[in-house]
């Protein structure tokens, strides 16, 4: 087989792929927000909730953390309809991503709660802060600073996970790469260009998150 790389046949589709990257990013943002909310609820229940709720939440978190996202989505997409829950592929992927992210973010936020230092609150109270004030000025800034780096990292991971949506026919970045591949048959070119799109996408996202963290939370470190 004589195969020579011909990127020329793929170039007309570069904007089409960029559109896919935009869809991937939207999917990631929505999954992140829902996942964050799930994680917050689960973390609060695990740390402060009654025992039965705690056990239920822990089971969900531990189960999700130890099973593959792809199979979780397969389950949601193929098994739930047997029980009357019919989801289109985009929704199934989004729910899978969010439930998965929720488990991870529950662990992250739990660690955040645990890092609250009692002495700091006591110090604030001896300075005459009210309860609300000490939460507003001491506890929340501290938690945000602790949580920001792992949550940013989680966002990058979710962004890359969205490529799984292609398996269910969602036309995001990877899905569109499949489409172009079936039109042009320039497989290696199409997928390496998509790979570059993901690299650029995550680097841009990391850089933005890093800059925000630096200015708003005085977090040191580097993008790479």
């Amino acid at each position: 087989m004589n195969y020579t790389l011909q990127f020329g046949q793929v170039t007309p589709y570069l904007w089409y792929l960029a559109g896919g990257a935009w869809i991937a990013l939207q999917l990631a943002v929505v999954a992140f927000i829902i996942g964050w909310a799930i994680g917050l609820v689960c973390a609060s229940i695990t740390e402060y909730g009654p025992k039965p709720a705690r056990i239920a939440v822990r089971s969900y978190v531990v189960f999700v953390l130890n099973t593959p996202l792809l199979v979780q989505i397969f389950f949601i997409y193929f098994a739930l309809p047997d029980y009357g829950i019919l989801l289109d592929s985009y929704d199934a992927v989004l729910i899978g991503l969010a439930l998965n992210a929720g488990a991870y973010m529950s662990e992250i936020q739990r660690a955040g709660f645990r890092s609250i230092r009692r002495e700091e609150i006591e110090a604030a109270e001896t300075l005459g802060f009210t309860r609300v004030q000490s939460i507003r000025y001491v506890v929340v800034p501290h938690i945000l600073k602790v949580l920001y780096p792992p949550l940013s990292n989680q966002f990058i991971i979710i962004t890359m996970s969205t490529s799984i949506a292609a398996i269910f026919g969602v036309e995001e970045l990877t899905g569109r790469a499949y489409n172009i591949n079936s039109i042009t048959f320039r497989s290696l070119e199409v997928f390496s260009i998509s790979a570059v799109y993901y690299i650029v996408l995550t680097i841009v996202a990391s850089t933005i998150l890093y800059t925000v963290g630096r200015y708003f939370f005085r977090i040191k470190g580097s993008v790479f």
Binding site: Y3, L188, F191, S194, Y198
Partner: peptide, 18 residues
Amino acid sequence: RRIPFLVKLMVVFFAFQF
């Protein structure tokens, strides 16, 4: 680190073919 597993899989698959 920055390429999703599925895309990496495709790149490797077609790179071997290439």
